[in-house]
Amino acid sequence: MSTEVLEPAGPSKGTITLVHLYPREMSIYGDRGNTHALASRIRRHGYTAEVVLHDPGDDFRHDAHLFMGGGGQDSGQARVEADLGAVGPTLQAMARDGVPMLVICGMYQLFGNSFHTVTGQVLPGLGILDVTTRGNDRRMIGPVCLETEYGRVVGYENHSGSTVLGEGQQPFGRVLSGHGNNGEDGLEGARTLNVIGTYLHGPLLPANPMVSDALIAVAAERATGRPFEPEPMSDPLADEARERQVRRLIGHR
């Protein structure tokens, strides 16, 4: 485990503890950029960011306010299995209690009910999100644009698992361009309370700061007991990067 404390430029409104789950095993395709983006934005909103890198076997931070988990290779998933089994019940309870979490790709799959491999094996998941994933021969790769409750979101998907939502499970967004969960039902990701699961790398948060703010708002409230006190902020680079991708992928719709 390693912990880094990043102070805001002015007086701190409180400390938000952000845990990145398995940064070595489960962080491919720039997933660490999401943690980077969250930490930097927490500071810019005037809060102290305590960034905890949680490795397998580390003491689990039961007092954390925000979680982030990324994608991994099969070998990476195998390395975190035991630890995830141990901390799973705590994560489930925290998710039910409303702790915000962003889980991407491999970790999204592990947060679901189960994963069915091509060879017929069934691997149980944490069941925090009511989704089921099946291994595929076909890889779903490419840029993605979604319509979400946070606005239009852009990213890049790269997964062979095909995910289906359970009855009543909300998606993260509707696919405007790209494959999404399974390439068929036009849905992408899943959201339950403040837990967002998605296939979008990119990484997701730098180009879509409104998603960061939605997660930080809940975390700030949990951390301080007061409503989120955001700083006014403009994101010209992120807005331009995102809007250009939206125009490339779906035109001016």
Partner: peptide, 9 residues
């Protein structure tokens, strides 16, 4: 390479 995520690594 169509994915620019790697710039964050």
């Amino acid at each position: 390479g169509r994915d620019v995520s790697w710039l964050y690594d």
